[in-house]
Design a protein around this nucleic acid. Structure first.
Lengths: 334, 334
DNA sequence: GTGAAAGCGCTAACAC
DNA sequence: GTGTTAGCGCTTTCAC
């Protein structure tokens, strides 16, 4: 830690600390000669202002927090990438918190952050439980932007994608490719994100005159081994000819299960997954995906947070919807 | 921000701020009755201590910084995952900075962090240039742990993998699979990480009596389009029968280039890449990888940083080497 | 066992 | 154009 502070600069230059402070912030009152001297000395001594002192004094931290389920998930790491880029442009610092889909952890993080440590929060909630009091408290206390994984019934600014439409379109694509028994791998069902994806599936079935079969609906868990078992079970017992996976994490287990059961994709079964995997085109077979604009979601979310800081042009309950894109590949080929 | 502070608690309870502060930190001098009253009120008012005030007073931040080239890279996001888990156990906060392989950015971040904002830094350096003065300055000023991408000639604690051995073993594997013209995709060449990987390649060739052919050595750039062109060029003009890619980012371009040139992997050419891609087993064909223990690198690095904070059992210039594992798959099948 | 008071480093009102 | 001073919220020495 550089232990050189304003006081020392002031002594050295025979100025008051106030003048030095003003010179450093380029205050108009200070003569350019004084500014020059101060800046020169500061530079030569590698002076860096103590952030905690100014944070304390200014009641702002120039820091934002990002709360996500997992950083080691391509969607979230891309979103963080987008967030970080915007933050850097504004000279803001980015704190990262992982909930590992655990509601308790999310609650603890969120409430701890209301101590002034950050000026705002970007959160993609775990949705593991329906407990959302902490989110309400948080957004009443500091600016919060929700992204991707949101609760519709919580007031606040939200950046989401067109989950319903994407899901609907995916099912439509499967049907057009000849699928008659389309399974759905359900996740995020406590969140409106998950709800909309499910509704897209259900409505598309209905619109095509296909009755809903509850045996084709598999609810995923937080345990990846169990998910694999559930999927294998689905394939073995219910023999769907199409699968729509509502989250990326379930795509690989589908592939592995098909291999294990000697099912050929796409001949025996066609697969689509919500996914940001950049290896989708290189898989065997290449995977048809609904790809969310993850980076843009992050940068949009961060951008709007800064707008809130600047108190300009945003609706207090604005929801911004970005479009995902359905990329058709071999896994749904006819 | 919760605007309830020690002063208000003190007023409410007819105590001094000093007593309240001591009660909150469970100081032995305070009667248990007083502690009970303080804790109760604090709890009921959702009191959270202002971190900047205590940071300023205590001259510590309970925060660490992680500087990486990219968060949206599976190796780094896994490492961050490991770091975050350890940090959380110690109730530390984690700041994330991305350099995008840009040396200027790395320098700016590093030097800014020496203002007391963080108690320590974990860094995987970009190595884009040979400029490393900032790293020396940083580690002289606060605890720094280098991980994966390191300079051997900078003093400090380092967590790395067995780069030389991994590379050597990979080439050996290619040779045993029948390769005679093995290309090497060079990256990180300013870093000892990159140097060791290259040396493993060179030595393995030599030990097998294969002369080094400089046309088979391709130096990657920061521009992915250019890298793709370089690889395609290599394949078209020099017709290697094996490739060792020293970074994950070049594996996909190899696959695409082979497709473009109608080269069959592994019949015409065999491929190994340093990689943490979890889709490696599902690629077409599945990819033989040297997989680094990314999560463990992160958690080890964070663990040793906390040991430094605790001033116990570490060597000031300790280098800890974790083992990568060569996972043989179809891309190098005979 | 508790309180008074100083001070961490910075900024901003209020002087002049 | 510059200086004096108070205070952000917390911790800790010193006093009693």
């Amino acid at each position: 830690m550089s232990n050189i502070n304003i006081k020392k600069l002031a002594q050295e230059l025979n100025l008051s600390t106030a003048t030095v402070s003003r010179a450093l912030t380029d205050n108009y009152q200070i003569s350019s000669e004084t500014k020059r001297r101060v800046l020169e000395l500061a530079k030569s001594l590698n002076y860096e202002p103590n952030p905690f002192a100014s944070n304390l004094r200014n009641q702002k931290s120039k820091t934002i927090a990002v709360i996500v389920p997992e950083v080691a998930n391509h969607f979230f790491s891309l979103a963080i990438n987008g967030i970080e880029e915007i933050a850097r442009k504004r000279d803001y610092h980015v704190l990262i918190y992982q909930t590992h889909e655990n509601s308790e952890t999310e609650i603890a993080f969120t409430l701890k952050l209301l101590s002034g440590r950050v000026d705002g929060i970007l959160i993609s909630t775990s949705g593991e439980t329906n407990n959302k009091q902490h989110l309400i408290e948080a957004s009443q206390s500091i600016p919060v932007v929700f992204f991707d994984r949101v609760y519709e019934d919580i007031e606040g600014v939200k950046i989401i994608t067109d989950d319903y439409e994407s899901s609907y379109q995916a099912v439509q694509h499967l049907i057009e490719a000849g699928c008659k028994k389309i399974a759905y791998l359900l996740a995020l069902h406590n969140l409106s994100t998950g709800e909309k994806r499910l509704n897209g599936y259900l409505t598309a079935l209905k619109d095509n005159g296909i009755p809903f079969n509850k045996n084709l609906l598999v609810t995923s868990t937080v345990d990846s081994n169990q998910n694999y078992a559930l999927i294998k079970n689905l394939l073995a017992n219910n023999k769907p000819d199409g699968i729509l996976s509502s989250i990326e994490e379930l795509a690989f287990p589908c592939y592995y299960a098909c291999r294990e059961l000697n099912l050929n994709i796409p001949r025996d079964i066609k697969i689509i997954s919500f996914s940001n995997l950049d290896c989708a085109p290189l898989l065997n077979p290449s995977l048809t995906t609904i790809t969310q604009p993850a980076f843009e979601i992050g940068s949009e979310a961060a951008g709007i947070l800064f707008k809130i800081f600047d108190k300009k042009c945003f609706e207090p309950n604005e929801t911004r919807v970005l479009k995902s894109v359905l990329i058709k590949r071999e896994s749904t080929a006819v």
